[in-house]
C-alpha cells in the first residue's frame, strides 16, 4: 500500500517534470528563470487550495465552497485595504485567514454538529458567499490602481529568487505534511476517513475534528483570497468561479480517494502542480484556454477511474468484507 502510494507520487513528479520539459522544448521561455518563477507563483494558489481540499476529502467530505470563500474573503480584504491603505501589509493575510476560518466554521458547524451532508452544505454556502460578494461590493470591482502599494508588492518580494507566493505555498504544504504525518490529529483524520464509526469507538473526537478540518480548509481558502487578489490585482463577484473543481481534480490526480481514508499531502501537492502546469501549458501548445474546463473534467474522470482500478481493496483488511455497494461487480 505504502509502496503503491510512493510510486504514484514519484510517477506524478516525473510526469510533472516531463510536462515542463515538453513545454520548454516548444517555448524555451517557459523554462527560463523568469518563466519558472512565474509558473511557481501561479501554482502556489492551487497548491494551497488542493492541500485544503485534501484534508476534507480524506474524512469523506467535500468542500465546494472553497472558491466562493476565496472570492468573498478576497473582496472583504480588498475593500478593507482600499479603505485603510495606511495599515501594514501583514494585517491583510491575517484578516483573510480569520474571515476564511469563520466561513469554514459555518460549514463545519452545519456538517459536524447537524450532520448535514457536506455536498448540500457547501453547495449552499458556495451560493451564499458568492452572493454576499455582490452584497458587500454593490457589484463593483476593486481594480489594480485602487489597491495600496504594499498590498500588491509584498507577495512579489523575492526570497532566494522565488516570490513570496511560492514560499507561502511551500510553507502551507510542508506544515500540512507535518500535521498529517507527524501528529496525532493527522493520524486520527486518516482513521476517521477509513472508518468513522471505528474511529469514534477508538476515542477519536470525530465531530470536533470534522469541525476543525472545515475550519482549517476555510482558513486556507481565505489565505488564498489574499494571494489571488494580490496576484491578479483584482476583486470582483466572479473571481475564481469554478476553481473548486480544480482543487478536487488536483486531489484525485494526487491519489486522494474520494471515499476517504487514503491519500497524502505530497500526492495532492503534485496533483496540483501537474494540473496547474498543464493549464499553463495549454496556450504554449496551441490549445485555447476555453478548453481548460473540459480538460479538468476529463482529467477528474480519468484520475478517479485509475484510482479505482489501482486500489481495489481500499483499506488493508485481514478478512475480506462484503463491499456496501454490492459485491461481485
Amino acid at each position: 500500500m505504502l509502496n503503491v502510494l510512493k510510486s504514484r507520487e514519484a510517477l506524478l513528479a516525473a510526469s510533472w517534470l516531463a510536462l515542463i520539459a515538453l513545454a520548454g522544448s516548444i517555448t524555451p521561455n517557459f523554462v527560463s528563470i523568469q518563466g519558472l518563477r512565474d509558473l511557481m507563483t501561479d501554482l502556489s494558489i492551487l497548491v494551497v487550495l488542493a492541500v485544503a481540499q485534501m484534508i476534507v476529502i480524506l474524512i469523506r467530505g467535500i468542500d465546494l465552497s472553497v472558491a466562493a470563500n476565496l472570492a468573498f474573503t478576497g473582496m472583504v480584504v480588498a475593500l478593507l485595504s482600499v479603505a485603510n491603505p495606511g495599515l501594514p501589509t501583514v494585517v491583510w493575510p491575517l484578516v483573510c485567514i480569520v474571515v476564511g476560518a469563520m466561513v469554514g466554521m459555518l460549514n463545519g458547524a452545519l456538517i459536524a454538529e447537524l450532520q448535514i451532508p457536506p455536498i448540500v452544505v457547501t453547495l449552499g454556502t458556495m451560493s451564499i458567499w458568492r452572493g454576499m460578494i455582490f452584497v458587500i461590493s454593490g457589484g463593483s470591482w476593486v481594480v489594480q490602481h485602487q489597491f495600496p502599494e504594499g498590498y500588491l508588492a509584498v507577495p512579489r518580494t523575492q526570497i532566494l529568487g522565488l516570490t513570496l507566493f511560492f514560499w507561502i505555498g511551500l510553507t502551507v504544504a510542508a506544515g500540512m505534511w507535518l500535521v498529517m504525518t507527524q501528529t496525532r490529529f493527522g493520524r486520527e483524520l486518516y482513521g476517521m476517513g477509513g472508518n468513522p464509526r471505528a474511529a469514534q469507538y477508538a476515542g477519536v473526537r470525530v465531530k470536533h475534528h470534522e469541525f476543525w478540518v472545515y475550519t482549517i480548509t476555510g482558513a486556507l481558502a481565505g489565505l488564498s483570497g489574499w494571494l489571488w487578489t494580490s496576484r491578479y490585482a483584482m476583486a470582483n463577484t466572479d473571481v475564481a468561479a469554478g476553481f473548486e473543481l480544480q482543487t478536487v481534480a488536483a486531489c484525485v490526480i494526487g491519489g486522494v480517494a474520494i471515499a476517504g481514508g487514503a491519500g497524502t499531502v505530497i500526492g495532492a501537492v503534485f496533483g496540483a502542480l501537474f494540473l496547474g502546469t498543464l493549464y499553463n501549458i495549454l496556450p504554449v501548445i496551441g490549445v485555447s484556454q476555453f478548453w481548460q474546463q473540459a480538460l479538468s473534467g476529463a482529467i477528474i474522470l480519468l484520475a478517479v477511474y485509475f484510482n479505482m482500478i489501482s486500489r481495489k481493496p481500499p483499506v488493508r483488511r485481514i478478512l475480506p468484507l462484503a463491499s456496501p455497494q454490492g459485491a461481485g461487480e
Partner: peptide, 20 residues
Amino acid sequence: MPAIVVTIGTMSLFRGIAAG
C-alpha cells in the same frame, strides 16, 4: 465510480466542451 465525483467531473467536462 462514485456519483459525486463522476458528476463533478462531467459537470466540468460537458460545459467545458461547450466553452471549448
